[in-house]
Design a protein around this nucleic acid. Structure first.
Length: 158
DNA sequence: GCCAACGTTGGC
DNA sequence: GCCAACGTTGGC
């Protein structure tokens, strides 16, 4: 069982939106980055847990937890010319892009902000999120980092 | 809105 | 295969 972090802009799709979806489940589609795709296609398993990270918003940070409820399968939004993430080079016979299904687990009791995470650079030294220039939208999280961030949830800064 | 960092594209 | 140009991400 592995741990992950997945980014979404809350104006587009937030942890609250996921909670309100049917069965509290949604396909994590629209990812058009090969490294992120490889994680979803090759490394994610049903039952893995992921942080839901709110990006490109006033206070970016970890907002909640979700569960991978279906392992990687083809992202058919790539085949739809009307879809914002349409990719004419993705052939249905040999799909280029993959998604997983995620299911709402819980909202964090408070948002653990990126700024706060950066304040703990010592403990989170190798955390990919805070490595300079990292724009990956799907990334693995070590268990030690997972546990540390959950610890921060219950220890708000003054 | 700015812009650094990074990925992708395409000419050569 | 190189690399300049361009597009995107995402914090600030």
């Amino acid at each position: 069982m592995r741990y992950w972090l997945m980014k979404s802009e809350p104006d587009e799709f937030s942890i609250q939106d996921l909670q309100e979806r049917k069965n509290q489940t949604e396909g994590w589609d629209g990812v058009r980055n090969y490294q992120a795709r490889n994680f979803m296609r090759d490394d994610m398993s049903e039952g893995d847990l992921a942080f839901f990270y709110h990006s490109n918003t006033k206070v970016p940070g970890v907002a909640g937890i979700m569960r991978i409820s279906r392992a990687g399968y083809p992202d058919d939004t790539a085949f739809d010319p009307k879809d914002a993430h349409y990719d004419p080079k993705s052939d249905p016979a040999k799909p280029r892009w993959y998604r997983v299904d995620v299911t709402f687990e819980r909202e964090l009791e408070r948002l653990v902000s990126l700024a706060e995470i950066k304040d703990h650079a010592d403990e989170l030294e190798d955390f990919p999120l805070v490595r300079k220039g990292n724009r990956l939208s799907v990334m693995p999280v070590d268990k030690k980092h997972w546990d540390f961030i959950l610890g921060m949830e219950n220890n708000p800064p003054e």
